[in-house]
Computed example of a mutant assay.
Amino acid sequence: MDRSEPRPEDRHIPVMRDRVVDLLAPGIEAARAAGRAPLALDGTLGMGGHTQALLERFEDLSVIGVDRDPHALAMAAERLGPLAERLVPFHGTYDEVPQALAEAGAEGLDAALYDLGVSSYQLDDRERGFAYSYDAPLDMRMDTTAARSAEDLVAELDEAELRRIIRRDGEERFAGPIARAIVRAREQAPITTTGRLVEVIREAVPVSAGATGGHPAKRTFQALRIAVNEELDILERAMPAALDALHVGGRLVVMSYHSLEDRIAKRHLVQWATSTAPPGFPVVLPEHEPVVRMLTRGTERPTEQEIEENRRASSAKVRAVEKIRVSRTTA
């Protein structure tokens, strides 16, 4: 790395670091009590900030660090230094828990963290094309080896599919006009940069909408990023995959940054925390008992001080559960 550039640890402040570690800690302690070497999963390794905090607190802990971005795996290893000896890197997506465990030669987990969304360094890397605030190639791939970019989606999807994605994944009320504007604009010339896409969106969205809804391109960029990286589909698979991999007493923490992610996390966690016995049934059989115990009431949010130190933490929501009986939610 060019030493004129800031080090990874200087550019990244892990969101709610101490609270996340505190929530996961009892699962790690339970493994010790059972005579087992504790193992955690950081399903979204990024620059390794949360993993670093875990490895520093627990000297016998190993962490499987999952990330689809090869550059992130390299940066995290550099950040961790000697601690990286207890990191098992896995290049893939966070729904691939069985594969990650197999590569680590492990059977189960004692703690798992999903810190969702795009990482800070990806947002800051202009060539990645995640941000609408400056002109860059229209890419948005978290895994730079993946085949399809945002440019490909904008160029290839028909108007109906563009409208569906922008409405569903961006919750954008002007999805129809934006989709039509994209199709018209690409007939004149390919849309290959974030700056050009922003221009197209500005022309489609009423000026008055910006007074209350923030930047007019915000939701469309979110929708394209989610679609390019299949984020919601992966999260749907990742939730049960993590639960099934946890030992009884293990803990799962999910940190989301927008309502679509949080709804998925909430739905799974509430379902697992609820008895499946028929209402009024006199005896609840073990297989109908809840699988998890809620550790958070609703969601927990960053403190004002944390938001002051890291503005990107402002939208974070944390949910956490402890596994209380054996489960099998996936086929």
Rank of each mutant, 00 (worst) to 15 (best):
D2N: 07
R7Y: 13
P8V: 07
P8N: 06
H12N: 08
I13T: 15
I13A: 15
V15D: 03
R19V: 11
L24P: 04
L24Y: 06
A30V: 08
G35T: 09
R36D: 03
A37M: 12
L39N: 01
G43V: 00
G43N: 01
T44Q: 02
G46H: 01
G46F: 02
T51A: 09
D60Y: 12
S62L: 15
G65M: 02
G65P: 05
D67G: 05
R68Y: 09
R68Q: 11
P70R: 14
H71Q: 11
H71C: 08
L73F: 11
E78R: 14
R79N: 02
G81D: 10
L83T: 11
E85P: 12
P89E: 09
H91I: 10
D95N: 10
V97H: 02
V97S: 02
A100T: 01
L101S: 03
E103C: 11
G105T: 13
A111W: 09
A111T: 06
A112D: 01
L113Q: 04
D115E: 05
Y121N: 11
L123P: 15
L123V: 11
L123S: 06
D124A: 14
D125R: 12
R126L: 09
E127T: 12
G129H: 05
A131E: 11
D135V: 10
P137S: 10
D143R: 02
T144M: 12
R148D: 00
S149F: 04
A150Q: 00
A155G: 15
E156N: 06
D158T: 10
A160N: 08
L162F: 07
I166H: 04
R167A: 01
D169F: 01
D169I: 00
G170K: 05
G170M: 03
E171H: 09
E171C: 08
E172R: 01
F174V: 10
A175I: 00
G176F: 06
P177L: 04
P177M: 08
R180F: 11
A181L: 05
V183P: 08
A185W: 03
A185T: 01
A185D: 02
E187I: 04
Q188M: 12
A189W: 09
A189N: 12
A204G: 06
V207C: 09
G210V: 13
G213N: 12
L224M: 07
R225N: 00
I226K: 00
I226N: 00
N229K: 02
E231I: 00
M239Y: 00
A241K: 00
L246Y: 09
L246H: 04
V248N: 11
L252E: 00
L252T: 02
V254C: 00
Y257T: 13
S259C: 07
L260S: 03
L260G: 03
V270I: 14
Q271R: 14
S275C: 11
S275V: 12
T276E: 08
A277K: 06
P279M: 06
G280Y: 15
F281S: 10
F281Q: 04
V283W: 14
L285P: 06
P286Q: 15
E287Q: 14
E287A: 11
H288W: 13
P290G: 12
P290R: 14
V292A: 10
R293K: 15
R293A: 14
T296A: 10
P302H: 13
E306L: 15
A313L: 10
S315K: 03
K317T: 04
V318P: 14
A320E: 01
E322T: 13
E322D: 05
E322Y: 14
E322K: 15
R325M: 06
R325A: 07
T329A: 12
T330P: 04
